[in-house]
Simulated assay, not measured.
Amino acid sequence: MQLNAGCELSFYAQSPTPLILMLRPRSGAGQWIIREEYQITPAVNVTEFTDMYGNLCQRVVAPEGPFSIHFSATVQTADLIDTGIGAPYTPVEDLPDDVLHFTLPSRYCQSDQLGSLAAQITKNVESGYDQAEAIRKWIYESITYQYGTSDASTSAVDTAASRVGVCRDFTHLGISLCRALNIPARMVVGYLYQLDPMDLHAWFEAYVDGRWFTFDATQALPRGNRITVAYGRDAADVAFTTQFGSMTLNEMKVWVDAVQNETSESDKKVDEEATLLTTVGSTEQTAN
């Protein structure tokens, strides 16, 4: 499915403020960027780099006063996500070098403190994909999704104790429980079609059987039509905006809409004939 997705961010900077933005998705597995538009007001110098996870990042300095960012894109997305029931666990000694660090604890994912819970959830479950799926299902069934119950400092350990949170918290907990079983797991942020309420979204991927699989603990069943913007160890790596100074976010809008079906072939033919008659017989034509 083709999706039109994007966001608008409106800030007020109390003084000139450096920013790192992470808003541009890139073509890759399950998505192809057809069109994109990036507007920053007022106009400022922008430089772009690729971080260690392959994410596209933009550096700007917002001047004092109002500052806004508009990003939109049309993306071809996969209608389904791959599943792998029974896919085997990949031993740590066989992991690629660039996957190894996704087995370690990180700022919001204290996997070293959640081993007992992970073992309890996956008791008698086959090692590998089935363990990650058991974790996803347990979070979906056991953690209450509720806005306003967590903040930027909430960690996986906090969520495991409170049993409440939002997609960010669900994701941190899923990552931590997988890593506690030596299954590499990483955070993914982006857009999800028909998310309710609409917002920027987070989910996790687990590495089993030599590849990454998608898991979303906020959803009852696997869902495709996702647009990935960034990957990282946890939320510290995938912030859409990172500011280095006093700056207030006043408003944020997010949208994901299906591209309307193209005109049918018969309608196209009628339109082409009408255009041909209009142009060929037009008295407004000029000879070159």
Rank of each mutant, 00 (worst) to 15 (best):
Q2I: 06
L3N: 03
G6P: 00
C7H: 06
L9K: 07
Y12C: 12
S15D: 14
S15Y: 14
P16N: 15
M22H: 04
M22V: 03
P25I: 03
P25G: 06
R26W: 11
G30R: 06
I34F: 11
E36G: 02
E36W: 08
Q39M: 12
I40A: 10
T41N: 15
V44I: 12
N45A: 15
T50P: 04
D51M: 11
M52T: 10
G54Q: 06
G54S: 10
L56V: 15
L56R: 11
L56D: 08
C57A: 13
R59W: 08
A62R: 00
E64V: 14
G65W: 12
P66F: 12
F67N: 03
F67V: 05
F67R: 05
H70E: 04
S72W: 09
D79V: 13
D79G: 15
D82G: 04
T83S: 12
G86C: 07
G86H: 04
A87T: 02
T90I: 08
T90W: 09
P91C: 06
P91N: 02
D97T: 05
D98Y: 09
V99D: 01
V99W: 10
L100S: 01
H101Y: 11
H101K: 11
P105F: 13
S106T: 02
Y108P: 02
Q110P: 01
D112W: 14
Q113N: 07
Q113M: 13
S116K: 10
L117Q: 08
A118S: 06
A119N: 12
S127G: 04
G128K: 04
Y129E: 01
D130P: 01
D130C: 07
Q131M: 11
A134G: 05
I139L: 05
I139P: 00
Y140N: 14
G148W: 09
D151G: 14
S153T: 15
S153A: 13
T154L: 13
D158M: 09
D158W: 09
T159A: 09
A161S: 08
V164W: 06
V166A: 14
F170T: 01
T171Y: 12
L173A: 08
L177Q: 00
C178Q: 03
R179H: 06
A180P: 00
N182I: 01
I183F: 07
P184D: 03
Y193L: 06
L195G: 01
H201S: 07
F204P: 00
E205T: 02
Y207S: 05
Y207C: 01
D209W: 13
R211N: 04
W212D: 00
W212G: 02
F213P: 01
F215H: 01
F215S: 01
A217P: 00
T218G: 02
A220K: 15
A220E: 15
A220C: 03
L221S: 14
P222W: 11
N225C: 11
T228Y: 10
Y231K: 05
G232E: 02
D234M: 08
A239R: 14
F240M: 12
T242R: 13
M247K: 04
T248V: 13
M252S: 14
K253R: 15
W255H: 10
V256G: 04
V256E: 08
Q260W: 05
T263Q: 07
T263R: 09
D271H: 15
E272M: 14
E273V: 13
A274G: 10
A274P: 00
L276V: 00
T278S: 15
Q285Y: 00
